[in-house]
Nucleic acid binder design. Structure first.
Lengths: 202, 202
DNA sequence: CAGCAGTGAGAACGATCGTTCTCCTGGCCG
DNA sequence: CGGCCAGGAGAACGATCGTTCTCACTGCTG
């Protein structure tokens, strides 16, 4: 606003990172550390080190730790939504799309850095002190509910099936995180199959 | 050990609390504060204030914050197990006992201080840094799995039903916590009813 | 009655951490 | 070529917090 008319992008500095690149590296570092170790067990200094930026740059792009957590959750939400939609789109039919949810979860659970749902973890850690974070988490969960409801509708099943299938997915996530195994995905898938079959033949 | 032969209980001091009473008050305060606000958002000083004991006494009874968290979780585990067993025992038959799980959850969700499963919350907050806490959480969840498995066996249903019903209970807890409503209990109950019916008529 | 053991109240300590500030270096524009 | 602005590295600051220590007191024991 107050700049001169020639507000060129400083961008292409040789040794330095472009703003976009710095943003991405910071978010990636925040995701790995916050998710892997917990938000409160990770200092901003560690994020800086892992991202390879200066503290100044870090605070220039994200005004506070809370804002960084929020942005990393939003990015995770984007990736989750995209992953779910791709998985559903690859299924042969509407019922297959619903079951694909649990196959997607199974693949996630098998990743060695899997530590449960980042949203649930952050909610437990900051939900009571940060309304912004709590809102992002609620939004994520309600978006997932809507996603499942859409697939249920496509399959021609009654709407009451959707929250039931969502509960199975939620339970599978926390169970896999705590037990440290991926079997809950298959169990949820089997239960979902039964519920879908009954709902469709009613 | 090194005390004199007359190791009497100092117990009945007029103004002071007995060791047992202090323990209970501390655990109660820890439960309320740790659960309501998160472990890391609660200082030992606040626990002391809420329990009405001195810091010295507090550290004498619980050698560290981690130990206090562990003991409060163990107490919660006891209360949860007892509540579940009472709820199941009050049901007319084995299927009713399984469904009573979700009624018990519904009652819990409606409590105004409900903030999700304390074990999941603590796991997210300390699971990666405290093996002791992680172990208590895993034990709690596996005990619940066994409890459900026993009821499923009593009902004459195949063992594969048990983890499915447990997933519904887990999902209902996190969903209720984040959404702030109790409807997930009813949804889980309905889904459970369907799964049980199918499992028994197979 | 003298002494001691345990206690309450709270100060003190050491560490951590979120955030800001200082200093310095190196391109870019005029 | 000289001033200027952006950025990097890291020190510094202020607050919080887990844990321990000090000190005065009280009720019991011998």
């Amino acid at each position: 606003m107050t700049g001169t008319a020639t507000s060129r992008t400083p961008a292409a500095r040789p040794g330095a990172l472009t703003e976009e690149a710095a943003r991405e590296r910071i978010i990636a570092a925040a995701d790995e550390l916050f998710y892997g170790r917990g938000v409160q067990n990770t200092g901003m200094d560690e994020i800086r080190g892992a991202a390879g930026v200066s503290l100044k740059r870090l605070y220039q792009l994200f005004p506070s730790k809370e804002a960084l957590v929020e942005q990393m959750l939003l990015e995770r939400h984007r990736a989750w939504t995209e992953g779910m939609e791709v998985a559903a789109a690859g299924a042969p039919d509407a019922v297959g799309a619903l079951l694909a949810i649990y196959d997607y979860l199974a693949g996630w659970f098998r990743q060695e850095n899997f530590r449960g749902c980042a949203f649930i973890n952050c909610f437990g850690e900051m939900g009571s002190t940060s309304p912004r974070i709590a809102a992002v988490v609620r939004r994520h969960k309600s978006d997932f509910q809507e996603f499942v409801a859409r697939l249920v509708s496509d399959a021609g099943a009654p709407p009451s099936l959707a929250p039931q299938l969502a509960l199975l997915a939620e339970g599978a996530q926390t169970t896999a995180a705590i037990a440290g195994t991926d079997e809950s995905a298959g169990q949820a898938r089997n239960a979902a199959q039964t519920l879908i079959r009954v709902a469709l033949t009613a």
